[in-house]
């Protein structure tokens, strides 16, 4: 396998992390209970953060993922999680001359199955603990395509099998009469295929409104690269794609229960600081089923 196929378009692949901001926290599902969501996530970006954190333009690039997310409680403390990109589309625009309108570089698209994350969460504390703590392991299965298009610059997956170990802690409380929660996590993402490993950190604040029919939350996610992976220089290949992505992003999401179990959700996320990552927001909409 060529270096190019091993290494990935971080501008794109790193965006997928924005899509993993699903229900989580230190609360495993109760036994035989679950939470499932079918959603569409997308971003269209024409600029990116460079390796110095500044913003440069790029040809307009779109990524669309149709995702299935599920959590299911095997026991009261052990939950299995699945985040699968059932359909992923990555495209780039035509590049045209403004003078002649002729196409200089034709745009291309790639459609395929995306990457799949399989996770396991274990509650270190008993249900009902004042400050619940859970540990989780997420396995990133590289089921997407890593190189498509004539320049092999399109992809629907990151092509590497990563393992992320994460610990979550949180607490439920009330703000006035409004049920709320606050959670945080730290994680270490071990990546293969010469990708840099990552430290991850995040916070989430959620509020239950309208008699708990509407839950809104805001998340801050921070990824710091250990910068111990390959670069174009160390790999001695002109086709290697960038590594060492870092970012700090903020996300907002609303989940509205139409019935006791069914509802829809909408959210957006974007990096406010980054290195080698898209500098436009991503959006998501979906429907969920909460097995209460």
């Amino acid at each position: 396998m060529s270096i190019m196929k091993k290494q990935l378009i971080i501008f794109i692949s790193s965006l997928f992390v924005f899509s993993t901001s699903y229900a989580g926290g230190p609360w495993p599902q109760a036994k035989s209970k679950g939470y499932f969501k079918l959603s569409e996530w997308w971003t269209i970006f024409d600029q990116h953060f460079t390796d110095t954190g500044q913003i440069d333009p790029n040809v307009t690039t779109g990524v669309f993922n149709t995702n299935f997310y599920g959590e299911f409680g095997i026991t009261d403390r052990f939950t299995v999680l699945l985040n699968a990109s059932l359909f992923s589309r990555n495209y780039m625009n035509n590049l045209r001359s403004q003078t002649t309108t002729e196409i200089i570089v034709p745009g291309e698209g790639l459609n395929s199955l995306g990457d799949i994350d399989l996770g396991f969460k274990y509650g270190l504390t008993q249900a009902g603990a004042k400050i619940p703590v859970a540990i989780s392991l997420t396995l990133g299965i590289p089921s997407g395509k890593t190189a498509g298009g004539s320049l092999e610059n399109l992809q629907t997956g990151d092509g590497e099998f990563n393992q992320m170990l994460q610990i979550d802690a949180g607490r439920g409380f009330k703000i006035g009469n409004t049920p709320s929660y606050l959670s945080s996590y730290v994680g270490f993402n071990h990546r293969t295929n010469d990708f840099s490993e990552e430290l991850r950190l995040g916070f989430e604040l959620g509020l239950g409104l309208l008699n708990n029919k509407l839950w809104v939350n805001s998340k801050v996610n921070i990824v710091e690269s250990l910068k111990n992976g390959a670069t174009a220089a160390t790999a001695n290949s002109a086709s290697i794609f960038a590594n060492n992505t870092e970012y700090a992003s903020i996300a907002f999401e609303a989940n509205y229960y139409l019935t006791k179990s069914l509802g829809f959700s909408a959210g957006m996320a974007g990096a406010f600081r980054g290195e080698v990552i898209a500098a436009r927001p991503s959006y998501t909409v979906g429907v969920f089923y909460d097995m209460k």
Binding site: I44, D46, F64, N93, L95, R96, S97, Q98
Partner: peptide, 21 residues
């Protein structure tokens, strides 16, 4: 309308560069 907008957004469009010399 939502699905239509989503599909259209996923179509390949045009970027123009200032290339007159």
């Amino acid at each position: 309308l939502f699905l239509t907008a989503l599909i259209l957004n996923g179509c390949i469009g045009d970027d123009f560069i200032l290339d007159e010399v």
